[in-house]
Simulated assay, not measured.
Amino acid sequence: MILVTGSDGQVGYALLKTLAPLGPVKGLTREDGDLSNAEDVAGLLEKFRPRCIVNAAAYTSVDQAESNPDAAHAMNAKLPAQLAAWARANGALLIHYSTDYVYDGSGDQPWAENALTGPLSVYGKTKLAGDQAVLDAGVDAIIFRTSWVYGARGHNFMLTMLRLARERDQLSVVSDQWGTPTPAWLIAEVTAVALRDKLRGAKALDGVYHLTCRGETTWCDFSKAIIGGACDFGVPLSMSSDKVSPIPTADYPAPAPRPLNSRLSVRRVEQALGLELPDWRDALQLTLRDWVEFRNN
């Protein structure tokens, strides 16, 4: 059995469908148990005894983590540590997801997997602690670090921009933070390829990999692409993409500091899995099409 934690989130939801051809898949949500409670987690692991754990559960409220560090640590550090320990003891595979927030955001070049980490926020620090716990456990594991995750369902930047574009006639969006938007479906697809290879005995496929689309952009230009793409699909909005104005991060204060450079090099994952990841613009068009169809049904 493949056990997917956080299956009610946007990545977890995509994983349930994408991993189905590889074997029985069981998704865990809050209704199944409290994943921040070690006893609940232990009980679920013994109940299902998976051959593979795909950990899509996390505390992702970046700003709230600043005032709730214990809750963030429980989900982002303690949970993956417990999953890794169980997987090692029971000969299971672990796939875990991490974030660009483990880096300090300096410079303007894409981060490689072996770059020095230096998280700026509680969220980033707890995610890095989870990564390290998995690596230290000596378990058969893959860690995918991704960035700017969005999708046609759930709560994410794309859906927020589409909502605001229906409610307002202009927007101001940060233009000095760089990164790569990555749809949940792409994360699930690449995970399926990696898991298939692992199940076929690809022993060398382990450690940390960056998993994003190709290319780079800013939140401001991403917003313009979302609104422009939605207009191309005939979605009625109250504004066009040229009504999105750039502002610096300093003009949009938040409790948690954001990395200015979230570019991630994807060369290692492409070479390891024999893939050519899509440009973020092409992936956005596919995701918008999915959203339009979902919205119209």
Results as ranks from 00 to 15, higher is better:
L128M: 01
P183H: 05
A56E: 02
T99L: 11
Q271G: 11
V173E: 13
V134D: 01
D251E: 15
P21S: 05
M1L: 03
P21C: 12
I143V: 08
D206G: 15
M161C: 10
R153D: 02
H96P: 04
D290N: 13
K203V: 14
V4I: 12
K198W: 13
A56D: 02
K203W: 11
A56Q: 06
A87G: 03
G9H: 12
L275M: 12
V41S: 04
T249Y: 08
W185Y: 14
P183N: 07
D40N: 14
D40K: 05
V134Y: 00
S240Q: 12
H96K: 01
R166S: 13
A283R: 06
D169R: 15
Y101P: 00
V266C: 15
D206A: 15
S121T: 05
G23V: 13
E167M: 12
L135G: 03
T60M: 06
G130A: 06
F157E: 07
D206L: 08
P259A: 08
V292G: 00
G27P: 03
P259E: 08
A194E: 08
S36Y: 05
Q10E: 15
L162I: 12
W280C: 00
M239Q: 11
I142G: 04
K125T: 05
T191V: 12
L275F: 10
G274Y: 09
W86R: 02
A192Q: 11
A188Q: 06
G215N: 02
S61V: 01
T191D: 11
Q132V: 05
I95M: 13
P248S: 10
N114F: 08
T212V: 09
G201E: 08
E113F: 11
G179E: 05
N114D: 15
T287K: 08
N68S: 13
A283H: 10
V41F: 11
R263P: 02
V62P: 09
I187A: 02
Q82L: 14
G215I: 03
V134P: 00
L171D: 07
Y97C: 08
P80V: 02
V208W: 04
A256P: 01
R289I: 05
V139S: 01
E189A: 11
P246C: 09
I247S: 08
